[in-house]
Design a protein around this nucleic acid. Structure first.
Length: 189
DNA sequence: GCTAGGCAGGAACCCCTCCTCCCCT
């Protein structure tokens, strides 16, 4: 199966009120990360990056000041995705609505793309565990976060890719058979 | 340690609405 694992950093939680400031993604084919197939860009927001977001993500106004505009970043990301299935952690509630809202706001025509939420893999594996956050998942899998910048999309997406590969294997699913139902999201056409 | 928005899922109830929790930055 052809997957694109992605992560967004934004200026807040609301797709209507806040903006994307970073997109990162890695490609997986047949259950393995393709090291040469990575996507990462800062995105120039219309408003300033709030101080508390810089504190969390390490992303400052200096990082995004000269970055490409949202419309071209979203279009480039969509080209990178191609016909792959998207994967994001809590993507159903956060990343996927953010992509749709941001594309709409910038007047981009949309196309449908399949996705699944990696939290569903965790729920399948550890139904009784109270937390399925990325931190909880990586702890349970014993994944190292050394040399990774957490809350930078490039670091988070690398961690999430390892987590997805590991959870997929633990579920005993064949590399080309998704163990959770696919859903529909939107990207620029 | 609080805040921000929206969702899913449950409670209470029979079809909606309301509530609370989780998770993302």
């Amino acid at each position: 199966m052809h997957l694109v694992i992605f992560d967004l950093e934004t200026t807040g939680f609301s797709p209507r009120l806040h903006e994307i400031i970073q997109i990162a993604a890695v490609r997986l084919r047949h259950g393995a990360v393709l090291p040469a197939e990575r996507f990462a860009t800062f995105v120039r927001p219309q408003s300033a990056v709030p101080a508390h977001i810089t504190e969390i993500t390490g992303i400052s106004n200096r990082d995004v000041r000269l970055a490409p505009e949202p419309a071209s970043c979203l279009a480039a990301f969509s080209r990178f995705v191609g016909d792959a299935t998207l994967v994001a952690h809590n993507g159903r509630r956060f990343d996927i609505p953010f992509l749709r809202e941001s594309s709409n706001r910038h007047g981009l025509r949309l196309r449908e793309v399949s996705f699944f939420d990696s939290m569903e893999l965790s729920r399948r594996l550890w139904a009784r565990e109270p937390s399925h956050s990325l931190d909880a998942v990586t702890d349970r899998l014993g994944l190292s976060t050394e040399n990774l910048r957490r809350h930078d999309a490039r670091g988070d997406v690398q961690l999430l890719a390892s987590a997805v590969v590991s959870m997929w294997q633990r579920l005993g699913a064949a590399p080309d058979l998704c163990p959770v139902p696919l859903e529909v999201g939107h990207l620029p056409a």
